[in-house]
């Protein structure tokens, strides 16, 4: 059985809780040798791991050192959730510095999402146990959205929030939705729940500033939205000033 560890860095525990409450968790307990998982046991082990799952961003030197040690020892590092993969919402703190895990080590696989979608999470966990390669979808959220339209958007984008379920694509209703540039895999869960996509699965082409620049270039975006463009970087600290 594969020796598995679940590590939490600076995070809210939401991704680990998603693992714990997932439908395949009982199978996971029986088919893997879980050596470290703070949510269910405080037993510490010095053993080497075959696979480690990392939740949260890196804020402390000790956390960076831990990642490097695990990597050096040969563990396959899998990043779980938007904080570990992209830096997450905490990267907007003006008082502390937070980095995604890939700044320190090369992850074997990544699954963003706040929290990661259950189906992809189940696939990832089983792939890790069976030693099968895990791949993220290479499509955008619009490919899963029942309201997606293949058209140009003439309506000015003036709002970030919906007040009712969409009758058509949010962008055609003047509400900013990041579905066109965001990686699929969530089944457009927020949009179906009357909330525009805010990009928790990260940019499809992995370069958010450039993807956003492209999106904004084909939309009519009001000045008030441009002034508040930080909303588009909720899960990833912008490296370019966007205005």
């Amino acid at each position: 059985m594969k020796k598995i560890g679940f590590f939490q860095l600076n995070s809210c525990s939401g991704c680990m809780f998603a693992v714990l409450s997932s439908t395949i968790f009982l199978d996971l307990l029986k088919s893997a040798d879980i050596r470290l998982f703070r949510l269910i046991s405080d037993v510490q082990t010095e053993d080497q791991f075959d696979v480690v799952f990392i939740e949260g961003g890196v804020t402390r030197n000790e956390e960076a050192a831990l990642l490097r040690r695990l990597w050096t020892e040969g563990a396959k590092i899998i990043t779980l959730g938007s904080c570990a993969v992209l830096g997450g919402i905490m990267s907007h703190s003006p008082n502390m510095h937070i980095d995604p895990v890939n700044k320190f080590v090369d992850p074997y696989a990544t699954l963003p999402g706040c929290p990661p979608p259950q189906q992809l999470l189940g696939n990832l966990l089983m792939s890790a146990i069976d030693g099968i390669e895990f791949k993220l979808p290479e499509k955008n959220v619009c490919s899963e959205c029942p309201f997606a339209q293949d058209q140009t958007y003439d309506v000015e984008i003036t709002s970030l929030n919906a007040l009712h379920p969409p009758k058509s694509c949010f962008l055609s209703e003047g509400i900013l939705c990041l579905g066109p540039i965001t990686r699929a895999g969530c089944g457009a869960r927020c949009i179906k729940g009357a909330t525009p996509c805010d990009g928790c699965l990260g940019a499809l082409d992995r370069n958010l500033p450039s993807a956003l620049a492209n999106l904004f270039s084909v939309l009519k975006v009001s000045d008030s939205i441009r002034e508040y463009a930080a909303i588009a970087f909720r899960y990833q600290k912008p490296e370019l000033k966007f205005k």
């Binding site: 995070s11 809210c12 939401g14 991704c15 680990m16 919402i89 905490m90 805010d198």
Partner: peptide, 12 residues
């Protein structure tokens, strides 16, 4: 935006 941010304080 406040109600969108604060759920990330605690995932439980």
């Amino acid at each position: 935006d406040l109600p969108k941010i604060v759920p990330r304080i605690c995932g439980i």
